[in-house]
């Protein structure tokens, strides 16, 4: 149970961010997206709307893609949060990153981090999704550039490339 901190006070919160445990003083009212961008300095996660309407802020919390502007940072105590910066290891591109790059799944790139995290969440649950399943899984992520055509192609290409 959370301690009831003093009013604008902060509490120490332990969150595993991209595989590494961090401990930060976090205000009760800090949104996860602001924690990631400002406290953890991970600006790969974007914001596109005034709350819950675009999906640009999608990250994985315990493997599940959720909009990080719709959840509080303090709620992630003890949980694992993954952002676009956490994909790919040792300077190698993750298969979704490579596919989005090669198939032009990213034009302006602003929706891309959220889109890739939503797709990654899908592939962890469902390694070989159909096109309909891909479209459904990305239905909470708006893109203004691509018409989603090359985004869906990119996810398919990543599936074909294998893990």
């Amino acid at each position: 149970m959370f301690e009831s901190g003093p009013v604008p006070g902060k509490r120490l919160v332990r969150i595993r961010v991209n595989g590494r445990w961090r401990e930060d003083a976090v205000a009760d009212d800090q949104l996860l997206v602001d924690y990631l961008r400002e406290t953890a300095g991970l600006t790969g996660t974007k914001t596109g709307c005034d709350g819950g309407e675009c999906g640009a802020c999608t990250v994985l919390v315990d493997d599940e893609p959720v909009p990080s502007c719709l959840t509080l940072a303090v709620r992630c105590e003890g949980r694992s949060v993954e952002t676009i910066e956490g994909l790919g290891a040792g300077g190698r591109l993750h298969r979704l990153q490579r596919a989005f790059h090669e198939k032009l799944g990213a034009q302006c790139g602003y929706c891309t981090p959220g889109m890739i995290m939503a797709a990654e969440g899908l592939l962890r649950r469902r390694p070989d999704p159909s096109e309909a399943e891909i479209r459904e899984a990305l239905a909470g992520n708006l893109c203004r550039c691509t018409g989603y055509v090359k985004i869906v192609e990119s996810v398919r290409a990543a599936v074909e490339a294998g893990a």
Binding site: T43, K46, Q97, L104, G109, T112, I116
Partner: peptide, 19 residues
């Protein structure tokens, strides 16, 4: 060919104004 700045975009390294 893929975009020459595409890798920055897919890795989250690309910095937009707010970043």
């Amino acid at each position: 060919v893929p975009l020459i700045d595409g890798i920055d975009k897919v890795t989250g390294r690309a910095r937009y104004t707010a970043d």
